[in-house]
Simulated assay, not measured.
Amino acid sequence: MHTNLKKSHSCLLVIIMMGLLFNIHLVYLLIVGVIYGCSVSHLYKTERIKANQQNNLIHFGTATFNHKGKMTTINEKGKEILFADSSETMDLWALIDEYGLPIAQEERPSVVTLRNKQPMQNQMIGLKHKTNGQEKWLLVHTNPVLSKKSRIDEVVIVFTEVSFLLQYRNEMQNRNNYLKHLSLTDGLTGIPNRRYFEDYLHDIWEDMRKQKKPMTLIMLDIDYFKKFNDTYGHIEGDICLKKIAKILEKTVHDLGKVFRYGGEEFAVILPNTDVHTSKKLAAMLEQAVEDLKIPHSVSTDRAYVTVSTGATTFVPQDMENVEKYVQSADNQLYEAKRNRRQAC
């Protein structure tokens, strides 16, 4: 019995120890489970925060359009780009092209992509607000999306605002135009210069050649201008040139264009002008300058500044003859100056 009691005590002790050990494992597992659950929950929350942060850092707007061209989804960046506030919708914007002209419904990127079943890259699209006239410019990429039935009925559009780039491009274009204007303008008189003369002459020559119509070239030179400068000084000489340039432009008006050819010499190009009209206009130019009554006390011809003119009229044939006709007008000019001196 004593032996059996010992055995019973031993078994009880084993059972108690096993029970304690089992309970310890349960407690341990419970603690581990709680810690793991908290860790997973924290990790999930952290990943969601990261995902939201990453989504906010996306620099591109994304949107989907259905087969009717209606927007179905748009991300946060897209909303930021397109809408100033949450009350705005796409209906408040009109699509325009680079020239400010409306884009027809059938030509919208989403519609074209659905129709052609092909992606479109680097499309410049303008949005003009129908209420306040504000413009936004977007660089757009479109991609068709296959449905479960292998049918394309949705388009994904990725876009980013490039208004600042377009503004910069326009500013650069304006600056380039201004620089070009300076390069083609005489700095003293403000009228087109010799370089502009050569470009314009070739353009008008080609137009008149195609139309088989005559054109006239008149060359003008201020008489005894060196003596004028020597007597009155170069400042008065510059004032004289400005006045003459202004009166020549006023007299020619919209019949042609006046150029400062160089020094005291001017040129006039008259498209679609016959011999009779050119002679009449040359005489009018001479008289207009004389009517300015700019004193020229050392002139051996008049008491005022005068100009001599030489003109040639022709129907352009080929470009090889351009210089010939310029030389012809120049020869006529110096013949007129020689005759004026001999008359004196």
Results as ranks from 00 to 15, higher is better:
residue 1 M to K: 06
residue 2 H to G: 09
residue 4 N to W: 09
residue 6 K to D: 07
residue 9 H to C: 09
residue 11 C to I: 14
residue 18 M to D: 04
residue 20 L to D: 00
residue 21 L to N: 06
residue 31 I to H: 12
residue 36 Y to N: 10
residue 36 Y to A: 05
residue 37 G to M: 06
residue 39 S to C: 05
residue 44 Y to E: 09
residue 44 Y to M: 07
residue 45 K to N: 13
residue 47 E to C: 06
residue 47 E to I: 14
residue 49 I to A: 11
residue 49 I to W: 10
residue 50 K to T: 13
residue 53 Q to K: 12
residue 53 Q to L: 15
residue 55 N to C: 02
residue 59 H to K: 14
residue 74 I to S: 00
residue 79 K to G: 00
residue 81 I to T: 05
residue 81 I to R: 04
residue 81 I to A: 01
residue 85 D to L: 03
residue 86 S to H: 07
residue 88 E to G: 02
residue 89 T to G: 02
residue 91 D to L: 04
residue 93 W to G: 00
residue 95 L to A: 13
residue 103 I to V: 15
residue 105 Q to H: 13
residue 108 R to A: 03
residue 117 K to M: 06
residue 118 Q to R: 14
residue 120 M to W: 08
residue 121 Q to A: 10
residue 125 I to W: 05
residue 127 L to N: 01
residue 129 H to W: 08
residue 129 H to Q: 02
residue 137 W to N: 01
residue 139 L to G: 00
residue 143 N to Y: 13
residue 143 N to A: 13
residue 144 P to V: 02
residue 145 V to Y: 09
residue 147 S to T: 15
residue 149 K to R: 13
residue 153 D to I: 08
residue 154 E to K: 14
residue 158 V to W: 05
residue 162 V to K: 01
residue 164 F to A: 14
residue 165 L to H: 09
residue 167 Q to R: 09
residue 167 Q to F: 05
residue 171 E to R: 09
residue 171 E to N: 09
residue 172 M to Q: 14
residue 175 R to F: 10
residue 180 K to F: 06
residue 183 S to H: 12
residue 184 L to E: 03
residue 192 P to Q: 08
residue 192 P to D: 06
residue 194 R to L: 05
residue 194 R to S: 06
residue 198 E to L: 08
residue 198 E to H: 14
residue 199 D to R: 10
residue 199 D to S: 07
residue 202 H to Y: 12
residue 206 E to W: 05
residue 208 M to R: 11
residue 209 R to E: 08
residue 210 K to L: 13
residue 211 Q to H: 10
residue 212 K to A: 10
residue 213 K to I: 03
residue 215 M to F: 10
residue 215 M to E: 01
residue 217 L to T: 10
residue 223 D to S: 04
residue 226 K to A: 02
residue 227 K to Y: 09
residue 228 F to T: 05
residue 238 D to H: 06
residue 245 A to N: 03
residue 245 A to T: 08
residue 246 K to Q: 12
residue 246 K to E: 09
residue 249 E to F: 03
residue 249 E to A: 10
residue 254 D to Y: 08
residue 256 G to P: 06
residue 257 K to D: 00
residue 259 F to N: 09
residue 263 G to P: 01
residue 264 E to W: 07
residue 264 E to P: 04
residue 266 F to R: 12
residue 266 F to G: 04
residue 266 F to L: 08
residue 270 L to Y: 12
residue 271 P to R: 07
residue 274 D to G: 12
residue 274 D to K: 11
residue 275 V to C: 04
residue 278 S to T: 15
residue 283 A to C: 06
residue 284 M to V: 06
residue 286 E to R: 15
residue 288 A to T: 12
residue 292 L to V: 12
residue 299 S to W: 04
residue 299 S to Q: 03
residue 300 T to G: 15
residue 303 A to C: 07
residue 307 V to H: 03
residue 308 S to I: 11
residue 309 T to D: 00
residue 312 T to W: 02
residue 313 T to S: 09
residue 313 T to L: 01
residue 315 V to G: 02
residue 316 P to D: 03
residue 317 Q to H: 12
residue 328 S to N: 15
residue 332 Q to I: 01
residue 332 Q to F: 03
residue 337 K to G: 02
residue 340 R to L: 15
residue 342 Q to H: 11
